[in-house]
Design a binder for these strands. Sequence first.
DNA 1: TGCAGTGTTGCTTC
DNA 2: CGAAGCAACACTGC
Length: 281
Amino acid sequence: MPELPEVQTTVDDLNRKVRGRRIVAAWHDWPKFKAVEKAKGHTISGVRRLAKNILFHLGDSHLLLVHQKMTGHLLVGKWQIEGRKIIPLAPAELKEKVNNYIHFILTLDNGQMIGFSDLRKFGKVVFGTKEEIEDLPDLKKLGPDALAVNYRQFAERVRKRRKTIYQTLMDQTVISGIGNIYANDILWQARLSPFKLASRLTGAELKLLHRTIKPILVKAFKARGTSIDDYRDTAGKKGRYAASRLVYQREGESCRRCRATILRKKQGGRSVHYCPKCQGR
DNA sequence: TGCAGTGTTGCTTC
DNA sequence: CGAAGCAACACTGC
């Protein structure tokens, strides 16, 4: 589940590996990814992260937007394309099952390829001019980036919400970049109950929460992200954050602070993990 | 065996 | 307008 640290890892990889390369061919096997065809002939002048979106700058006028949603990840390597059949060649990691749901491939002028593996095909691809992409309603609605938001902005936006703080942290229109994994860990680190209403947080709680966000995301980025299920970097390798995670998917295990048993509950259709003893009320 | 659970986002409905 | 519920998918685990 790519969130900010995973998307940033991917974007940094791509800038290192494919910046300056021209796209000489595009292949896809699913109608919703057909926009990749229009990228053919363009040169990748850079790659940027916007919230959890990946923006390929094509020349100085166009953009290709890729959202990985839940199970999507971008890989750089070589495949053999035989009609609808894709055979992974190199690196060896591409042969792993999780990397074997390729639905589009961009072939570059040096023979390297960018492949998109997405088991559930929830991913999104849009091609357009800079103006067209920047005017997409979904991008316009995004709140400030979780790494860049200052305390004043953060407090003002969070306080307005009438949902729980857990749901508010994951709401991309409030601040962008945080999903379920890091929302869980951030709330645990700040000793805040996920069920507390955002509008009821005190100034001190908001301050604590705000200054907890960045260190958790940075720590995850340094570990190259979380790979509990599908996420892989562009070499097809796992991130290491899962091993040091604080509460996410630790139901039934003991709290790293107080040894109480970690619980899991449903909140707005998602699983929130928390310590009932040291995360307030 | 079959069906609920998984989690991001957009659309529909109220 | 905000919030809840569902759909987009396919595989895993009970």
